[in-house]
Design a protein around this nucleic acid. Structure first.
Lengths: 329, 329
DNA sequence: TTGAAAGCGCTAACAT
DNA sequence: ATGTTAGCGCTTTCAA
């Protein structure tokens, strides 16, 4: 593969001139430009990003940290990140951490090593202390899950009020016994959604009963199945359930189905995230939609602004309660 | 951020010696090594990959081309690719082409530009001609979708025989009228699965009826819904349907459900891919499982071997028919 | 065992 | 308008 010097020689100019043509900087006579372009063409020259990046000390690569690919929740966010990034000359590197600190370190090092210019983290299991240290020296944005009171800028929705709204919807339908399928409260969104759940119950003078709150060990469908199974073993069963993720809610629907229970007649279900699948279940799932594409898009714009040295502020976006069959009675 | 020279000065050695310590090459006295490690520690030095990559003219980055993230089919393959790659010191860059030639070009250029060392393409819509040209100069592996008679090495399953087996299963259950929900036959797997479908029918002297073969415009759930709707409008309806992807099959199940038809009593359904969701539908979905993780793992090992200059051969992996409720009658 | 120095491919300051 | 040159951070050959 030809390098810039060979192009320069063939065109009878210096490498500086070739660089000017390549980057459309400085001034080049149209005659010289023509010669250079001809040489580029003839040699099928492609500039090496390795040289350019070293010289400019930038990689134009952004890291996107997610715990794992298999959660469909992330796909639309990633689309948003990717669209903004590519439009602005950056590429993204999707990093699956598997909630594994070793992997996390690899990715952190890529930033320290100048292999990437910044990070968007969507990983709720990320080591926030390390990330905050890293944020001292490198541009970092949090997306969806963030650090309350921390210093790293974030994009998110108001989880507390979204959960509140979902529960209020269930209450207005006449449900007084409302269960919660939550996930580990080490996650901020889990704590926030639980708070919203409790606020709504209190507001309507409904009791908060611990046996109606089930905490799962993960977000797979199977965890939702498991959770619903437990709730159905109770003497006094809830008449509605709010799951903090669609995957859990779908697992719950599956279990209800297997038990021959009718949703929403026997029990109403609300999920969270509006993954594409939530419209394919029977019944279709009532859920909270986050503006995922916009979240990703916004996060990317914040990160790139931050890389360019501009100051960025955290952003709270709107959500929407999408009412479908699982709560239509 | 300190560079190698500062470390060298602080340790009272040359940058060459620091490099030797860093890379564990050459010979360094344990005393010198100690001094260098101390200096690295004190300065919190992290080697720049930019410099190293330029020098070694490699990026240790692999591109993985997929048409879009939202198809859950790809997630396990990606896990396999990622595990092998990371274990061997490479990182992967997930590239969503959206079947858009412009995006594709960006990614091709990254390889030409030395920003990436090779490509694994899972994109059935990729411009095979361009990719083949690129493969002359750069390591490229195809995964799952490949180029029949082409020169690029691939990992895949035998789609024709997998479809054949699925149809034979339906026939043995007593189905004589079997529909096919296929996708655009510009895709190799679509042509191969159709062939398998036809071979099984012929073998049992069953007619191949064009009105029972529906070709969708895409792989979203909604396309499956649409396809089933059309098949149900026929005067003579099929008693079983084979869809070439789980997403389509799940859409079909949804439509059957909406129409109040029972699966498998009124109509049996078989999908393809064994996505995690296929076990959450009601009824659960009979489907063909590809060894996705292994496919990804294999593809990555082939690519890295190819980068290291070793010769690689195409690989055909085994599949498995997973029988679930949608065909249990 | 260690150091000096060249060079990977590029850009930009400076000179002409 | 164009060329000369230094240097980004690293590795490696050659010499000591």
């Amino acid at each position: 593969m030809a390098n810039i010097l060979e192009v320069a020689r063939r065109a009878g100019v210096s490498s500086a001139t070739v660089s000017r043509v390549l980057n459309k900087t400085g001034t080049v006579s149209s005659n010289t430009r023509f010669k250079v372009e001809k040489a580029i063409e003839e040699l099928k020259y492609e500039p090496s990003m390795l040289g350019r990046n070293l010289r400019n000390s930038e990689s134009r690569l952004l890291l996107v940290l997610i715990p794992n690919f298999s959660n469909p929740y992330y796909t639309e966010i990633i689309n948003g990140i990717e669209d903004y990034s590519i439009a602005n000359g950056y590429n993204i590197l999707l990093c699956e951490t598997d909630s594994n600190p070793d992997r996390e370190n690899i990715f952190f090092n890529m930033v320290k090593n100048k292999l990437a210019d910044g990070i968007i983290s969507m990983d709720p299991t990320v080591n926030m202390q390390k990330l905050t240290e890293l944020a001292d020296e490198h541009p970092i944005i949090l997306c969806s899950e963030y650090d309350e009171g921390g210093s790293i800028p974030y994009v998110a929705i108001d989880n507390e009020s979204a959960a509140y709204k979902a529960i209020k919807h269930l209450i207005k339908l006449g449900n007084h016994n409302i269960g919660l399928i939550n996930t580990d409260e080490k996650f901020l969104y889990a704590r926030q959604r639980r708070k919203g759940y409790e606020r709504a119950l209190k507001e309507f003078n409904l009791p908060i009963r611990n046996e109606w709150i089930y905490t799962t060990a993960g977000l797979d469908f199977q965890h939702g199945v498991q959770a619903m199974r437990k709730l159905l073993q109770l003497n006094e069963k809830p008449s509605a359930v709010f799951a903090v993720s669609d995957t859990l809610a779908i697992g719950a629907l599956k279990e209800l189905n297997v038990r021959g229970l009718n949703v929403p007649d026997d029990l109403s279900v609300v999920g969270f995230d509006n993954i594409s699948f939530s419209n394919m279940t029977t019944p279709t799932l009532t859920t909270v939609a986050q503006p995922m594409y916009k979240m990703g898009f916004t996060a990317a714009s914040m990160l790139i602004n931050s890389i360019k040295g501009r100051k960025v502020e955290s952003v709270i976006l709107d959500y929407e309660l999408i009412i479908r069959e699982s709560t239509m009675k």
